[in-house]
Simulated assay, not measured.
Amino acid sequence: MQNLLVRSTFRLFFLLLLGGSAQACAEEVELVGVLGSKAVLVVNGSTPRTLSVGERTRDGVKLLGVSVDAAVIEIDGRSRRVVLGGAPVRLAENESTQAEVSLYADSQGHHLANGTINGASVRFLVDTGASLVSLGAADAKRAGIDYRRGVLSRSQTASGLAEVWRVRLENVRVGDIVVQGVDGLVHENDLPFVLLGMSFLNRMDMRRDGDRLVLRRRY
């Protein structure tokens, strides 16, 4: 009888341990409501949870920002944008540090790419002459960046001196490559593209093959 009790207790402990491990890792997140500055999230099909910005669930999902119809969440140091009424966001278990992407030059020799900043979609132009990832005010606002809290400076442009703010971007994604904590520069005016500068590119191995530019993440 005692041996049976010991075995049953061990089995219960083992099952609880497995259950706790499953809860510690969010695999799917859905935005089901927005209440002012709060977001209502469903994680792994569980009961809806209302979060304030900066709050984290027991599954490890942190709310970074909220807009009228979307939210930006973070898990395991990676950010994702979740759209209200959209399909749940599935979170990959791992993101390879050796991720690679190929970009092909357009008729003018420019390498363009679709990507995201802090989960917001942007259009990149690879610019090795830019020290930082540089974006206009409108793109910064869509990415939830309060750039006026950044470091104010001035930059020489074709139209003369312009105000710019140095900021920290939570993450920058191009294809399967995601880099966390990238230095950025926000211009007071809008830009036609986000300049993919060296604060992102210096973490890549870059290889040219004809009109193809291959980026491979180094770290």
Rank of each mutant, 00 (worst) to 15 (best):
G115V: 00
T116M: 03
A120Q: 11
A120D: 02
V122T: 07
V122S: 04
V122M: 03
R123W: 01
F124W: 09
F124A: 09
L125R: 05
L125I: 02
L125M: 10
V126G: 04
V126F: 03
V126H: 01
V126W: 01
D127E: 03
T128V: 12
T128H: 11
T128L: 11
G129C: 04
G129R: 07
G129I: 03
S131F: 04
L132T: 02
L132E: 04
V133H: 04
L135N: 06
G136R: 10
A138W: 07
D139I: 03
R142M: 10
G144I: 03
G144L: 05
G144C: 06
I145T: 02
D146W: 01
R149I: 10
R149F: 11
V151N: 12
S155V: 15
T157M: 06
A158C: 14
G160H: 14
L161T: 14
A162P: 08
E163F: 15
V164N: 08
W165R: 09
W165S: 07
W165T: 08
R166F: 15
R166S: 14
V167L: 09
R168C: 12
L169K: 14
L169M: 12
L169F: 13
N171L: 01
V172P: 09
R173E: 04
V174A: 06
G175K: 08
D176T: 14
D176N: 14
I177C: 05
I177S: 05
V178K: 08
V178P: 05
V179W: 00
Q180T: 12
G181H: 12
G181T: 12
V182F: 03
V182L: 01
D183Y: 11
G184W: 07
G184V: 05
L185A: 07
L185Y: 00
V186H: 05
H187L: 14
H187R: 13
H187Y: 15
E188W: 02
E188I: 12
N189T: 11
P192K: 07
V194E: 03
L195Q: 08
M198H: 06
S199G: 07
